[in-house]
């Protein structure tokens, strides 16, 4: 349990640094900005208490806001992601009961499960974020395009994150 918390804190710091120092500086064709930091919320244990899940997401979002001049925007979108997460997990899981402390991973959940999990959550997060950023519907279709492209790229990066984190897990078991 103790090592689990340390692990999540390390993931938090690493993802913030990757997001702020690398991804926010790369411009993929001008429009697209991947937000890979959402991986942090996705990797929290399945049975984490609800308040802790929401608070962690809020903390993550606020930290990203601090670094990118988007006061509250990432916090709002990430809290939204955390709010729908339990529902999404229930929806895509065939088996309703998990071992306590299960962390979403390729080895324990399978590729299909992880892919659905990533795509749904990233799409909800990005939709909320991009419309909050625009704050009007006059550029609706352009925004939709940005959401689709960014969702695809973020999802790919998050999936790579899952792949990278998977191997040591397998060796432990």
């Amino acid at each position: 349990m103790r090592t689990g918390i340390v692990r999540h804190i390390v993931q938090f710091v690493l993802l913030v640094l990757i997001q702020v120092l690398i991804l926010n500086k790369i411009r993929f064709g001008g429009y697209i900005n991947p937000y890979v930091y959402v991986l942090f919320v996705m990797l929290l244990p399945v049975d984490i208490p609800g308040w802790l899940l929401l608070m962690s997401a809020f903390g993550m979002g606020l930290t990203i806001d601090l670094f990118s001049d988007t006061q509250g925007m990432h916090a709002a979108a990430t809290v939204m992601l955390a709010f729908v997460r339990p529902g999404v997990i229930r929806m895509i899981s065939g088996r309703p009961v998990f071992d306590p402390g299960t962390i979403p991973a390729l080895s324990s959940m399978g590729t299909r499960w992880v892919l659905f999990y990533i795509l749904i959550l990233v799409f909800i997060h990005h939709t909320f974020l991009f419309f909050l950023e625009i704050f009007r519907f006059s550029e609706f279709f352009i925004t939709l395009g940005r959401i689709a492209l960014s969702t695809a790229i973020t999802a790919i990066m998050v999936y790579i994150g899952f792949l990278l984190l998977d191997n040591p897990e397998k060796r432990n078991r």
């Binding site: 609800g50 308040w51 929401l54 608070m55 809020f58 979002g61 606020l62 806001d65 988007t70 006061q71 509250g72 925007m73 916090a75 709002a76 809290v79 939204m80 955390a82 709010f83 339990p86 909050l132």
Partner: peptide, 20 residues
């Protein structure tokens, strides 16, 4: 309580967006 914590945090974040 899950819903109310969500409501609280989301409102907080949106107030910040609005202020900004």
């Amino acid at each position: 309580y899950f819903f109310f914590v969500f409501l609280l945090l989301e409102t907080l974040a949106l107030i910040m967006v609005y202020q900004h």
